[in-house]
């Protein structure tokens, strides 16, 4: 890779890490602050068995918080980037599924406040963009390390 291009890629990697980290941190705060309200948001998706709703509502925000911290700190990136991409794909699928079956629920993405009213397509598009960023980051973490491996085996 030419020197300039490599530097650009590295900058893009750091930027995506910080952006995605901030997004995950921001997403976790409201949910951790009000577990009861977030449990209601999870319930409203009507995708999980009733008995697992609260467990997911209690742990999911902490997964987001941990991922946010790891992304920003650049810590445990292989595991973190795969989990981030996987989670985002899960969120988008859940939203799209409810959109298709005509269930008008608030996504509960960044706020547990239902007064914001039901969400339509914008959160879907926004989260899809996050998937692109997260996918790029995952590829970078795995791809650029493999370059190191090749060099080491030379």
């Amino acid at each position: 890779m030419p020197r300039m291009k490599k530097e650009t890629a590295e900058w893009a990697t750091v930027l995506s890490r910080l952006l995605l980290g901030a997004v995950f941190l921001h997403a976790s705060f409201d949910k951790i602050a009000d577990p009861g309200a977030f449990a209601k948001a999870v319930y409203n998706y009507q995708m999980l068995p009733d008995s697992t709703v609260n467990l997911v509502a209690v742990t999911l925000p902490w997964i987001e918080l941990l991922l946010g911290v790891c992304l920003i700190a650049g810590f445990w990136l292989p595991g973190t980037t795969i989990l981030c991409t996987g989670l985002l794909i899960l969120f988008v699928s859940a939203m799209a599924y409810n959109e298709i079956r005509g269930l008008d629920v608030h996504c509960g993405c960044f706020s547990t406040e239902p007064a914001e009213g039901p969400d339509g397509f914008p959160p879907l598009i926004r989260d899809s963009l996050f998937i692109v960023v997260s996918g790029f980051l995952t590829a970078r973490v795995f791809f650029s390390r493999r370059m190191t491996l090749k060099r080491a085996n030379r």
Binding site: V58, I63, L66, G79, L83, F142
Partner: peptide, 24 residues
């Protein structure tokens, strides 16, 4: 030991376990 996919294999469950412990 340094291959990312191998790291991911233990980091993913480790992150999930940490989150479950912190959450509960």
């Amino acid at each position: 030991r340094g291959v990312p996919i191998r790291k991911a294999v233990w980091q993913i469950p480790a992150l999930l376990v940490l989150a479950v412990i912190a959450g509960i």
